[in-house]
């Protein structure tokens, strides 16, 4: 069952456009939403949550149209924009007192359990918490109202490697029982290799890929070889880099010819993203070669 269906979402700003953004998140999985800074990740998530008004397109959550059932759907969504940085001088307890009122399904026992698990002190003020603790507080609020879909915008940026690893483990733990799904945006692709089941990749407001992580990796290969082979590899090439030994290119797996001079290996998500992002520059560089 699809928990989130985004279809042909469009939003135009004077200097940026989301173009027909479509993807689907299945129930009980983690989807990583990747893209470089300014690619449209936050705009997409805000548009899904109606913080930004879409020009066209539809968003369905739990099978319901978001526009028609906004209140009902939001009861089951935990949405987090980066770390908690609102009400910096208020104590956690004060904020919780307010948040609790909005959710009839609030689970006080779960809230207390997460506070204790994350070592969060309700008497502390928000600005006394580290970045990691703020993310954990936001998650505590989301999990305490029994959110079934967590939409998290850059939850790991700003965290140290240990805190990041901790958080990613928690994500995996959360989906273990199968009743929660997570969509989280990041530009730190190594986070996704640790926990994401599906990847959606956005570039300049357009979705380039949206599939299972292993499918995405299988779709591309890193190809290395001498420069003289470069001209023979035009079809299916995303972009390439020249180095002292020859070239290194990202190619679609299906387009790689059998050639003894070429070394082929599996790319990382970072490779896929970096070579796609270089695609615009490639023409110019190509001409110079």
């Amino acid at each position: 069952m699809n928990i989130l269906e985004v279809e042909r979402l469009c939003k135009a700003y004077p200097a940026f456009r989301l173009k027909d953004v479509s993807f689907v998140l299945e129930h009980g999985y983690i989807m990583g939403f990747i893209g470089s800074n300014g690619a449209g990740k936050t705009t997409t998530l805000k548009t899904i949550m109606k913080m930004v008004n879409k020009d066209s397109g539809t968003v369905r959550v739990f099978g319901q149209d978001f526009d028609r059932s906004e209140l009902e759907i939001k009861q089951k969504i935990g949405f987090m924009m980066g770390e908690t940085d609102y009400f910096p001088k208020h104590r956690l307890g004060q904020i919780t007192d307010v948040v609790r009122c909005f959710y009839p399904a609030w689970d006080e026992a779960a809230y207390r359990a997460y506070l204790s698990r994350f070592h969060l002190d309700e008497a502390k003020r928000v600005d006394e918490l580290s970045s990691g603790m703020r993310v954990k507080y936001s998650l505590t609020l989301a999990l305490s109202h029994r959110a079934e879909l967590l939409i998290l915008d850059e939850p790991t940026s700003g965290l140290d490697p240990v805190a990041r690893d901790d958080l990613l483990e928690l994500f995996q733990e959360l989906i273990e029982d199968g009743d929660k799904s997570i969509l989280f945006s990041t530009h730190i692709t190594s986070d996704l290799e640790k926990c994401a089941d599906f990847i959606t990749y956005i570039k300049n407001g357009t979705i380039l890929e949206s599939c299972a992580e292993n499918e995405l990796i299988a779709k591309y290969r890193l190809v290395k070889g001498p420069r003289r082979q470069l001209d023979t590899l035009t079809a299916g090439m995303v972009s390439y880099r020249l180095n002292a030994f020859g070239f290194q290119a990202l190619m679609q797996t299906a387009a790689i010819p059998a050639n003894a001079e070429l070394m082929v290996e599996a790319p990382t998500l970072e490779d896929i993203m970096v070579y796609h992002e270089r695609k615009g520059e490639q023409t110019h560089e190509s001409a110079a070669v």
Partner: peptide, 14 residues
């Protein structure tokens, strides 16, 4: 200053 509008936008309200 509190970024209250963003906080409220995450809540189930119209």
């Amino acid at each position: 200053t509190y970024k209250e509008v963003y906080f409220t936008a995450t809540l189930p309200v119209l």
